[in-house]
Design a binder for these strands. Structure first.
Length: 257
DNA sequence: TGATGTTTAGAAGGGG
DNA sequence: CCCCTTCTAAACATCA
């Protein structure tokens, strides 16, 4: 039986569950995370069936996002204001599907109580970090002196675990699977293998301007997911620093390839 | 106020 | 028949 391709369904209902469709959407995004509206758009763009009865299936999809531990709600980074959070897959949920097929799940992905509590605590820390970031900007302290840091300072100052690459990690490192990395087990859906039309171009690597006096995001026991989130926040700080950089300053030196 | 997110409840279907 | 997963509905809360 030929593997179904994205075009073959027409107005027929695709054989994928909402969990699969959502995972597909998240997977296809450059950052491996999407806001709800983009998940909707991914699905309606590719599967005409879901252009009808949107209230019904979107309610179901939201239910799935909240109810299933395999989906993780990441606080929206403060340099991208907007409605709703970003949704990503839990790092341990990447091989949730049997043989990489989105048609069949191995088994329900369920976090244990402790794991869930830890994750929630980490996400709460992330959210408060964001609030502090926004409060700092809203408080409008005098802008940082227009002095470009030297290239040697181009490392996030508040996430010591991030740079350089942590040399030693607790045992959780063995199961590290960061959302931005390719999965060990690739999905086999045609759509996922085709290049995505660039909807939101991923920002190129940018230099970091040290933003001291921001709260440190310190976690006693960084989980694989949290390491990814910290890396993610280091990027947003880079982007924010870039956005705040006075235009008369010369661009930072590019790393020599 | 509409979009987003959480939670509970129940029906349906497949598999062991 | 039970267990599990998926889907659907709905009430309610929260947020930009």
């Amino acid at each position: 039986m030929p593997r179904p391709s994205r075009e073959s369904y027409g107005d027929q209902k695709p054989p994928y569950s909402y969990i699969s469709l959502t995972a597909m959407a998240i997977w296809s995004s450059p950052e491996r995370m999407l806001p709800l509206s983009e998940i909707y758009r991914f699905i309606t763009d590719r599967f005409p069936y879901y252009r009808r009865n949107t209230q019904r299936w979107q309610n179901s999809l939201r239910h799935n996002l909240s109810f299933n531990d395999c989906f993780v709600k990441v606080p929206r980074r403060p340099d991208r204001p907007g409605k709703g959070a970003y949704w990503t897959l839990h790092p341990q949920a990447f091989d949730m599907f049997e043989n990489g097929s989105l048609l069949r799940r191995r088994k329900r992905f369920k976090l244990q109580k402790g794991e869930k509590d830890n994750l929630n605590a980490e996400l709460a820390a992330l959210a408060s970090f964001n609030r502090a970031f926004l409060a700092r900007q809203a408080g409008a302290p005098p802008p940082p002196p227009p002095a470009m840091p030297s290239a040697s300072l181009y490392t996030p100052p508040m996430c010591p675990q991030l740079s350089p690459e942590p040399a030693e990690l607790p045992e959780v490192a063995t199961m590290t699977m960061l959302p931005r990395e390719r999965p060990r087990r690739a999905f086999t859906i045609d759509a996922l293998l085709e290049p995505e039309p660039p909807r939101s171009s991923p920002s190129p690597p940018q230099p970091v301007m040290p933003l001291a006096s921001l709260p440190r995001l310190e976690l006693a026991m960084p989980s694989p997911y949290m390491l990814a989130a910290q890396r993610y926040h280091a990027e947003l700080l880079q982007a924010a620093a870039h956005a705040l950089r006075p235009c008369y300053l010369p661009p930072p030196p590019l790393p020599v390839a």
